[in-house]
Write a protein that binds this DNA or RNA. Structure first.
Lengths: 228, 228
DNA sequence: TGGGATTTGTTCGTATGTATT
DNA sequence: GAATACATACGAACAAATCCC
């Protein structure tokens, strides 16, 4: 098995922690503490943090270190608007062109979501977004893939910050409908469904305000420090 | 005057050097040589290079250092396709909504391009792209701004790699026509013009193969190492 | 306001890996 | 294929800024 570099490992672990909303938006990310948790030096942690900053998942202030970004409501709307534009490109490209293998892949992804949702697993949030990343992958456009990944990741953050806990939100049905429309091949229908879905995610997400208890960084990262 | 951090300075200087096509795609970027040129340590250079890597302007291979990215022709097309989609969003948002001040700003930008073009200045390439960045800025969407900047920067690279020297290419006329259409407020006309413009940039750009002499890294960076 | 504890910023030496002859 | 030259990877240690009491 190919091990990624240590920077990569920390980078991805922290990203998972952020996307799965284990790390609160605004949470401070001290280099020392993280380094100890992952058993690496500050150099490595710092590089990982800078990569996350480039993805706009963490914000770095000079001499004040890194913290998980906390987008304003306005930024959140902007994010979703651009995301809708790019997801529109995705469905336009995929509509009526899915192979049997791709359809299978999408269906099993949704099945995974459903299971995670029923079990109230933490990674439901990530899997729910992953569906859109998989769709983007299928366009075979590296740029679409790259940008949509970033947008989807940041979406999770936004919903955590401005929304309520998401267990009531269920994307499974809408994802299924989307797959059906993509197979059927009606472009306008696909676009409508995708737009409606994203609008629903946003409005559902922004309803309540979600506040939870705050466990220590050390505890939060316990799961993510373990090798995958 | 607010001085940016040293990393920032090196980062932006190198980016200008890349975007203005002073640095060849594929060119190696040794930490030592750059550090000496800018009078900073390897640490600083490394951080700047990593930021450029995050913008996909340089590629970093483990244990082999950084070099200016050299996108394949396929990646180049993908880049322009996604760019066209996002520029389409831009014109849709701006069409018929430009303020007098914005119109002035755009016109003076184009005037600047024209001057640089006539004088055969190196920064014509950058200014020519800058026009599109300015348009993106006017949408007041941080995400559009962010992504289009990246796309425009990488476009310059692509044209340098797969194209011929660009002095014959003149975007000034098309930029003027675009401004006129945005003022007139015919959305479909704007979209057509923008799409045609970008297609023209791409096809004009990809015509000849451009090979030039190769001055030393030290010489290339002379201009960019000077304080702005 | 001050000063000590904490955290970040940076340098540089050493280790490790790559290319070359 | 081995030895050499060279460039990158990493971490310990120091300097500087910030936070907190």
């Amino acid at each position: 098995m190919v091990q990624g570099s240590r920077v990569e490992i920390v980078h991805q672990a922290l990203r998972r922690a952020i996307v799965e909303q284990a790390l609160e938006p605004g949470a401070k990310l001290p280099e020392d503490a993280i380094g100890e948790r992952f058993g690496v030096s500050r150099t490595i942690v710092r590089r990982a943090l800078e990569r996350l900053a480039a993805e706009e998942l963490v914000a770095m202030q000079p001499n004040r270190g890194a913290s998980v970004v906390a987008p304003t409501l306005e930024e959140a709307r902007d994010l979703f608007e651009i995301r809708m534009e790019l997801e529109d490109v995705v469905v336009r490209r995929l509509c009526g062109r899915l192979t049997a293998a791709q359809i299978e892949r999408l269906k099993s992804a949704v099945a995974g979501e459903q299971e995670a949702h029923l079990q109230r697993r933490r990674d439901y949030i990530r899997l729910s977004g992953e569906f859109h990343v998989i769709l983007a992958d299928m366009t075979e456009s590296p740029m679409l893939r790259r940008y949509l990944r970033q947008l989807v990741w940041r979406s999770a953050l936004v919903l955590r910050l401005h929304g309520r806990p998401d267990w009531e939100d269920c994307n499974v049905h809408e994802h299924h409908a989307l797959i059906a429309a993509l197979i059927a091949g009606d472009v306008e229908q696909c676009r409508r469904l995708m737009a409606a879905h994203l609008r629903a995610v946003l409005t559902r997400g922004l309803k309540g305000g979600g506040a939870r208890s705050e466990p220590s960084l050390w505890d939060i990262l316990a799961v993510y420090a373990a090798p995958t």
